[in-house]
Amino acid sequence: MQVFLQTLIGGVTFGAVYALVAMGFSIVYRTMGLVNFAHGNVVMIGAYAASNLYMFAKLPFPVAVAVAIAVTALIGLVIERVLRPLENKDFDLMLIGTIGFGTVLEAGAIRVFGATGHAVPSPVATAPLDVAGIKIPTYSLLVIAVAAAATVLLGLFLQRTKRGAAMQAVAMDHEAATAVGIHVGRSNAMAFAIGAGLAALAGGLIGPMLYVNPTMGGSLGIKGFAAAIFGGFGSMRGAIAGGMAFGLLDSFAAGHFQEYSELVTFLVFAAIVMVRPTGIFGETTVNRA
C-alpha cells in the first residue's frame, strides 16, 4: 500500500509536467494541424531561462519563470513567423522546419550555456510532508498546483475570451474563420506563443526536479507528445488526462517491470492507440493536415 501511494505521488508530479508539455503540443496542433517538433527543445530553453534567472540573476523563482515564459513565447512567435509563408502550402516542409528549429535551439544552448548543464536548487527548501509514512515533497505540491492553475487559466482563455474563441474557430474551420474576419496568421502566432509559454512553464517547473542541460528536451518532448496523442491530439482535456496517465503509467511500470519499464509503457501506449486511434478525448474538429 505504501509503495502504491508513494508511486502514485511520483507519477502525479511528473504527470502534471507531461500534461503541460502535452498542452503545448496540442494547442499548436489544434490551431494549425502542425506537430511542433521543436517543442521539447523549447521546454529546455524555458528551463535554462528560468534557472539562470533564478540562480544567477537572483530573481525570485515565480518572477524567473514568468520572464522565461515571456522569452520563450517570443521564440514561439519567431518560429511561427518564419514558417508562416508555408502555411497551407507545404505541410511537410513546415514539419521539417520545426525539426530544424529544434536542432538549432539545442545546438545554440550548447554554444551559449555549455554542454555540461547545471542542477537547480529547490525553491521551496522544506522537508517533505509525512502523511502516515507517505512522503510528499512540498515542491511536488507546488508543481501540481501551478500546473492545475495554468490549465484552468488556459481553459478560461479559450472559452471566455474573444481571442480564445477566435482560436477555437480557426481550429474548427480556418476558411470559415477567415470569412468571418478572423486573422488566421495572428491566431496561429498566438497558438505558437502560448504553446511556447506552456513549454517554458513546464521547463521552469521541472528544472529543480531534474538537471538542466541542452539535451533534456528530448525525452520530455517525446513523453509529452505521446501524452498528447494518448489523450486525443488537439484536445486540451485530453492533454491533461494523457499527461497524467503517462506519468502514472511510467511510475507504476518502473516499479513492476524494472528495466523494461520504458518498453512496457510504450507497449501499453501503442495498444491503447490501436484500440482508440483518436485517444481518450479524441476530437473530430482537428482535420487540417
Partner: peptide, 14 residues
C-alpha cells in the same frame, strides 16, 4: 533496476 533515462524512482526507492 531502472532505465538510464528514468526520472522518477519513487516505486523502486519505496
Amino acid at each position: 533496476a531502472v532505465t538510464p533515462d528514468q526520472k522518477d524512482f519513487s516505486a523502486s526507492l519505496t
